[in-house]
C-alpha cells in the first residue's frame, strides 16, 4: 500500500437496493438498455414551461417509429447506440472531428455525436443498419464496398458509407476529386483512402445502374 490518504474507502458496499435506486434516479427504467444518462431531476416537472421538450418522444429511425425516452442533453449518437441498440454508428471522437458517427438526417449526412436527439425529433434518420433491404440485399454503396475489398479496421466504415450514400444521392456521377470532397468529413486512420475512393466511384456506378 502507498501512503496516499484515501477518504471514502473502503467504500460502503453497494446493496442491490442501492443499485436499483441509482437506476431509478438515473431515470432509465423505461428503457431496457438506456442507463447511460442521468436526467435533470430538479427541473423536471417543476418547470413545465411553454416550449420545453418532453422526454418521451417518437423517433423515425430506419423507417420505423421508435418510442424512446430521451434526456435533454442526449446526442443522437447516444440515443442510437444505447437506447435503440444501433451500435453500427460508431463514436470515434464524439466531437465532430472524425465522422465515424455519420448518419443521414433527412437524407443529409450529419455527425450524430453533435446533434441533440430532440432537435431531430421530426426528421427521418437512417443509420448503417437501415441500408440493407429486409431481404438482405445490400445497398448499392455497401455492395460497392464489398466488391472493392472495403476498408481495413473499418471502424470508420459506417460513417464513410453513410457519406457515400449521401454523395450518390446528391451527385450520382462524381469525379474522383468530387468524391473525395464529398467524403472529406470522414477520417480513416488506416488511411485506406485510395480503396475508399475506388469504392465510392463503384458505388456511384452501381447506383446509376440501379436508377
Amino acid at each position: 500500500m502507498s501512503d496516499v490518504e484515501i477518504i471514502g474507502t473502503p467504500e460502503r458496499t453497494v446493496s442491490r437496493r442501492k443499485f436499483i435506486m441509482g437506476v431509478i434516479a438515473a431515470g432509465a427504467t423505461t428503457s431496457s438498455v438506456g442507463y447511460l444518462f442521468k436526467g435533470p431531476q430538479p427541473l423536471l416537472g417543476a418547470l413545465a414551461v411553454q416550449g420545453s421538450v418532453e422526454r418521451l418522444i417518437t423517433l423515425n429511425v430506419n423507417g420505423q417509429q421508435r418510442r424512446v425516452d430521451v434526456l435533454n442533453q442526449e446526442t443522437l449518437a447516444f440515443t442510437l447506440r444505447y437506447k435503440l441498440g444501433l451500435t453500427g454508428t460508431k463514436l470515434g471522437c464524439d466531437r465532430a472531428e472524425c465522422g465515424a458517427c455519420t448518419v443521414l438526417i433527412d437524407g443529409v449526412n450529419s455527425y450524430s455525436c453533435s446533434v441533440l436527439t430532440h432537435t431531430v425529433r421530426g426528421s427521418e434518420i437512417v443509420t448503417i443498419e437501415g441500408l440493407e433491404a429486409p431481404d438482405g440485399t445490400l445497398h448499392p454503396v455497401q455492395q460497392a464496398v464489398l466488391d472493392e475489398g472495403g476498408f481495413q479496421c473499418a471502424f470508420c466504415a459506417p460513417g464513410f458509407i453513410m457519406s457515400m450514400v449521401a454523395m450518390v444521392e446528391a451527385n450520382p456521377n462524381p469525379t474522383r476529386e468530387e468524391a473525395a470532397q464529398a467524403l472529406s468529413g470522414n477520417l480513416c486512420r488506416c488511411a485506406d483512402y485510395d480503396k475508399i475512393l475506388t469504392s465510392a466511384m463503384r458505388a456511384a456506378e452501381l447506383s446509376r445502374q440501379q436508377a
Binding site: T9, E11, V14, M21
Partner: peptide
C-alpha cells in the same frame, strides 16, 4: 497525497472507486 472521494461515493448510482493501491 490525498484522495477524498466521500462526496462522490455518497452520490446515488455510484458504485465505488478503484485506486492505485
Amino acid at each position: 497525497l490525498r484522495i477524498d472521494a466521500s462526496a462522490a461515493l455518497a452520490m446515488d448510482g455510484v458504485f465505488g472507486i478503484l485506486t492505485a493501491d
